[in-house]
Structure formats: C-alpha cells, structure tokens
Simulated scan of single mutants.
Amino acid sequence: MDPHRPHLTSPSALFKSILAHRHLIFKLARMDVISRYRGSFLGLGWSFFNPLLLLSVYTFVFSFVFKARWGEGTGDSRSEFALVLFAGLLVHAFFAEVVNRAPALVLNNTNYVKKVIFPLEVLPVASLLAAVFHMVISIIVLATAFLALNGFFHWTVLLIPVVVLPLAMMMMGFAWFLSSLGVFVRDVAQTIGILTTVLLFMSPVFYPMSSLPVNLQWVMLLNPLTFIIEETRAVLIFGNLPNWAGLLTYSIISFICMWAGFVFFQKTRRGFNDVL
C-alpha cells in the first residue's frame, strides 16, 4: 500500500471498505464490549442488568411516586410513562455513546496510526457496532417489560431496525468527522459531552412533542434525535407503523451526512501521524 496515495472518498469506497474489513470490524467491536466488563463479577451480564435497573427505577419514581402520565389518549397504565421515557432514553444513549467516544477514537489508538496498512476508517464503525449491541439489550429489556405489564407486545417491534438504521448512518458520519477533528482540536471531547447533555433535554425524552406550542414544534424537529425518538415509541410502545415518508427523507439526509463525514476523515487522516 502506497502511504502517499490519496484515500478514496466515493460512496462506493465507503461501502467497499466496510464490506472488505467486516471481520476486523466485528472483532474490534467484540473486543470493545468485552473490555468494558472484563474483571467484573457479572461480566457481560451488566449489559443486561444496567438497563433493567434503570427501567425499574423509572417505573417506581414516575409511575408510583409522581404518578405521571405521558399525555391524553395514551392509556391508563401507571407504568406507561416509564416505558415511553425509557424508549426515548435508549435512543439518546445510543447516540451519546457513539458521539461522546468519537473524538478520542484515533487518539486512543495511536499504535494503529503508525501502521500504514491499518484501515483507520473502521474504528468509528466498530464503535457504532458496540453501541448497537447495548441498544439491542435495552430494547430486549423494554420489550420484556412491556410484555410483562401488558401481556402482549406489538408486532411493529420488528420494524425497529428500519427506524434506527437512518440514525445509525447519521451517527456514522458524525463519528468519522469527530474522530478526525478530535486529533487536531483536543477540546472537542469536552464540548461534545456538553452538547449531548443539552440534546437530552432538548429532545422529547421527558415530555411529548404535543406539550410544546405548535409554532415551536418545528424547532424541536431540527434536533436529529426528535424524529427517531418519536418513531421508536410509535413502533415499540404504541404499535403504530412508522412514518415511511419521513424515514425516507431522514435516510437521504443521513446518507449525505455519513458520506460527508467519511470524506472529511479520508481527507484529513494523512495529518494524523504528524500530530500524534
């Protein structure tokens, strides 16, 4: 491999790289997940007990202490607010895990930067795959809790991959952009941590979109998490079909973001070695 050859930036190069290095991506993602729980007594069991504990706390606090209701026409179940809240939180947690870790991905793997033949572009992909693992566990916990409380779950839960995929593509673009930018601007990591916290409260996680004035709801829709959170609740909690037209539009925007992030990463990666 010629180290001075420009790295390809076309959409086909993006998908070819992921496909060609799929085994490496899965191996890195597996190592990432295992390393988080290595040495603990329960090991990977923590990936299940953490969301289970959070859901139990939310159910107790919001359903039995505050007796909160999500909104009119959403049912009388006292536990529904906790389920709806948890559905929003798992989407935000998925986004925050990838984006918060992105600025340090290259910095924490400087040994790979020195290796000319190592495909650095797979690092954000592996990080995303590890986050997908944790999100799947959270969805299983949520679906199990819904089944236990209601005696059934909606068949639309099977559509959750279709809903989450566009967000994953957009996050991939953010991860490529931030992982490269984090090499040159070390303050990015701290800034992103603050922004993801702000997004938690600026997303319809703790409150429904309908609680906002109609003339302000379009501002909330500028948040990339808003649409996916609403659609996730639709298929997981309320048993509704997703907004197909909205998903198509979101997917197109996400693909553009993903490609732009990939291009930025490929154009700037030649400077990693000099900075590190």
Rank of each mutant, 00 (worst) to 15 (best):
S77G: 07
N109P: 08
V122N: 01
S77Y: 04
S127H: 02
E80G: 07
S127D: 03
K115N: 10
Y112E: 02
L120W: 05
S127W: 02
E80P: 01
N109V: 06
L107G: 14
N111S: 12
L107K: 15
L123H: 00
R101E: 06
S127P: 00
P119F: 14
N100Q: 12
F86W: 15
L120K: 02
L89Q: 04
A93W: 14
N109S: 10
A87V: 04
P103T: 10
A102N: 02
V98Y: 04
N111W: 13
L89F: 10
L107S: 14
E121I: 01
R78E: 08
A93E: 12
A126K: 00
A96W: 11
V125A: 03
L90V: 13
P119R: 11
P119Q: 13
A104T: 14
S79K: 11
Y112L: 04
S77W: 04
P124E: 07
F95D: 09
V84Y: 15
A82T: 06
V91D: 08
A93P: 02
A82R: 06
A82F: 09
V116T: 11
G88H: 11
N108G: 15
V84D: 15
Y112N: 01
S77A: 05
T110F: 14
A87Y: 06
Y112T: 04
E121L: 01
N111H: 13
R78K: 08
P124D: 07
L123A: 01
A87D: 03
N108Y: 13
V122W: 04
L90M: 15
R78Q: 10
S79N: 13
A93F: 14
F94N: 04
S79M: 15
Y112C: 00
L120Q: 04
E121K: 00
L85E: 06
L85H: 06
F118Q: 00
V99M: 08
A96E: 07
A87L: 03
S127A: 06
R101N: 09
V125E: 04
V91F: 12
E97P: 07
F94S: 03
A102W: 06
S77Q: 03
F95Y: 13
V106W: 04
N111P: 05
F86Y: 14
V91Y: 13
R101I: 02
V122K: 01
L105K: 01
V99Q: 06
V106K: 01
Y112F: 09
V84R: 14
E97K: 09
A96H: 06
E121H: 01
L105N: 06
E80A: 11
A126F: 03
P124Y: 02
S79P: 11
A87H: 03
L83D: 10
N108K: 15
I117R: 07
L89K: 02
A104M: 13
K114C: 09
V116W: 15
K114S: 12
P124H: 05
I117C: 07
L107D: 15
A87R: 01
H92Y: 15
L83A: 08
S77L: 04
A104H: 13
L89Y: 09
E97Y: 12
